[in-house]
């Protein structure tokens, strides 16, 4: 039976991690979560990024946030990756599985997954 008291326990567990989380936010991952995005399946994509970034220990460097309609609804779910000093990368027709690959190869490894980008998707 879930209770608010559990939150105090969760917070204790998170205490060590909180310090690390105050990261520089060098990299921003933005998931389109407007009606078009959600209808196309953006919620599991957002979930995959949020969990994946935390599991990979990237929470200090990468922030994951939501945005509205980007304007290319037929290519939703869309994920944009912003990194200071680099060009924006726009991933289209994303899924939770593809998200995991982006986390591994792009966010961790620094190499854009070009097959998933908008340039590749005409």
């Amino acid at each position: 039976m879930k209770s608010l008291a559990e939150l105090a326990a969760i917070r204790e567990q998170m205490k060590d991690k909180i310090v690390l989380r105050e990261g520089s936010g060098d990299v921003r991952v933005v998931v389109g979560m407007a009606t078009c995005g959600i209808a196309a399946g953006a919620r599991p994509v957002l979930g995959a990024f949020v969990e994946g970034v935390a599991k990979a220990g990237l929470s200090g460097k990468v922030t994951v946030s939501q945005t509205g309609c980007i304007g290319v609804c037929r290519l939703e779910p869309i994920v944009e990756v912003f990194e200071a000093g680099k060009e924006k990368v726009t991933y289209v027709k994303m899924t939770a599985e593809k998200a995991n690959r982006v986390i591994e190869e792009h966010l961790k490894g620094g190499k854009v997954v070009s097959e998933y980008t908008i340039g590749n998707a005409e």
Binding site: K2, L4, L7, I10, R11, M14, R21, A54
Partner: peptide, 27 residues
């Protein structure tokens, strides 16, 4: 109420809290 129980410094968007909120509602 959730903020009161958590105290300062824990964003509601943390995966652990989000997961708790989902379970709390599902129940």
């Amino acid at each position: 109420e959730i903020r009161n129980a958590l105290g300062e410094g824990v964003p509601l968007s943390s995966p652990e809290i989000v997961s708790w909120i989902a379970d709390y509602l599902k129940e």
